[in-house]
Design a protein around this nucleic acid. Structure first.
Lengths: 197, 197
DNA sequence: AACGCTAGTATACGCTTGTTTACATGTCAA
DNA sequence: TTGACATGTAAACAAGCGTATACTAGCGTT
C-alpha cells in the first residue's frame, strides 16, 4: 500500500502538484460529506499523499477547509445582472443544479458543516458576503435585507432536503414548469410589496 | 464534583426520572449543536447523571437520538386543516418560530445531522413521513409531491440560514408583512398551476 | 438483620481524531 | 561525488469518542 489510490502516473516530488491534489480531494470530499465527516486521512488517501502533508502545506484541517471555501465560485454571477430578471435567474440556477447534479460544493459543504463551532464564523462571513449582501444590494425598497435572507433560505434549503430525500423526484419533474414555479417562489421572496391578505 | 450541574433537588434512585432527565438533556443539546457535536458525556453532565446510564437506558447514542426524534411534535398540526389556508398556516408557523425562538428541536437537529451516515435513513424517513407525504396528500392536481418538496425545502432552509446568520434581522422585520410574504412564497410552492413565463 | 435486586458510579477499553516528530529519499548545486 | 535542502514517509502523540465492565450504595422483602 503506497498511498496511491485515485491517482495514476504522477511526477514524484512535486510540491505544487501535491498541494493541488490535496486541495482537489478536500473540495470533493467536503462537498460530499461535510466538514465533520471527512478525516484528514481520507483526504490524504484520495489525493495519494501522506497525511502529514496536509498540515505541512495548509497548517490545519480547518485552514484547508478555509482555502477550499475561498476557491469556490459564488452565486455572484447569477445575482449580478438586471434586477428584473433576478427571480428567473435564481430559479434557473437551482433547476440547473438539480439536473446537472453540479451543485456548488461550497453550498453542499455549508449546510453539512453548520454544527462545527470553529467553522461558524467562516461560514457566516461567506454567506453574508457572497449571498445575502450582494442580493440585498440589488433590491430596492424597504426590507431589502429581509427579502434577501428569504431568497437565500430557499437556496440553502433545497440542498439539505434534496440530499436527504434524493433528487429523483425533482429531476423527473417537468423542467420548465419547475423553473416557473421557482421563479414565482423567488418573486414572492424578493418582491417589494407583497399583497397583504 | 457529584455530577450534578443543571439539576437541583432530585429524588435519588429514580429510574424513570433519570431516564427522563437524560432524554430532556439530549433533546436540548441535539437541537442546539446537532448530533455529531454532542457527546454522551455532555448529555450525562447536563442531566446530572452518569455516562453509563445512557447506554443502559437507551442502548446507544444513536438509539437515544432516535427516541428524541420520535418524541418530537411534527408539523402535522399545521399541515392538517383546510387546504386553502395551508400556505398561510405554514407562513404563520415559520414566523412564530422566528419570534418565539421555539423552533422545533427536531428541525434544528435535522439539518445539523445530515452528514451522519448512520442517521441518514432515520432522518430521511422522518422527513418523508412527517412532512413531505402528509403535505403532498393535501394537494390536488399533478406534481403534488414536487410541490410538497418545494415547501419542505423552504421550511428546512430557513433554519439553516437563520442559525448561521442570526435571526435578529428577521425578528425586527414587520411581522404581518413577513407573514404575507411567506404566504406568497408557500403559495408559489404549492399552487397547482403556476403561470408560465 | 441479612439478603437480593436495582440505580448509580468509577474507570478502563478499543478506536479514531488532528497533529507532530523523527526519519528516509529524491534532486540539484558545488 | 558529495553535501544541503526540499519532499515525502511512518510512526507516535495526546485527546476525545462511544461503549463495556466491575463495582458501590440504597431500598424492599423476608
Amino acid at each position: 500500500m503506497t498511498g496511491l489510490s485515485d491517482v495514476g502516473e504522477r511526477p514524484p516530488r512535486d510540491r505544487a502538484a501535491t498541494r493541488r491534489r490535496l486541495l482537489d480531494a478536500a473540495r470533493r470530499l467536503f462537498a460530499e460529506h461535510g466538514y465533520d465527516h471527512v478525516t484528514v486521512r481520507m483526504i490524504a488517501a484520495a489525493a495519494g499523499a501522506n497525511v502529514a502533508l496536509i498540515n505541512r502545506y495548509f497548517g490545519s484541517k480547518s485552514a484547508l477547509f478555509a482555502e477550499v471555501l475561498a476557491g469556490e465560485p459564488t452565486v455572484r454571477a447569477v445575482i449580478d445582472g438586471d434586477a428584473a430578471g433576478l427571480p428567473r435567474r435564481l430559479a434557473e440556477h437551482v433547476v440547473r443544479q438539480i439536473h446537472t447534479g453540479a451543485e456548488s460544493p461550497v453550498l453542499r459543504a455549508l449546510d453539512r458543516s453548520v454544527g462545527s463551532v470553529e467553522l461558524k464564523p467562516l461560514l457566516r462571513e461567506r454567506m453574508e458576503n457572497a449571498m445575502v449582501r450582494p442580493l440585498a444590494a440589488r433590491l430596492t425598497g424597504p426590507d431589502a435585507r429581509v427579502r434577501a435572507l428569504l431568497a437565500a433560505s430557499v437556496l440553502m434549503g433545497g440542498g439539505t432536503l434534496r440530499r436527504l430525500l434524493g433528487l429523483d423526484d425533482l429531476r423527473s419533474a417537468d423542467r420548465e414548469l419547475l423553473t416557473a414555479r421557482l421563479t414565482a417562489v423567488f418573486e414572492a421572496c424578493l418582491t417589494e410589496a407583497p399583497s397583504l391578505r
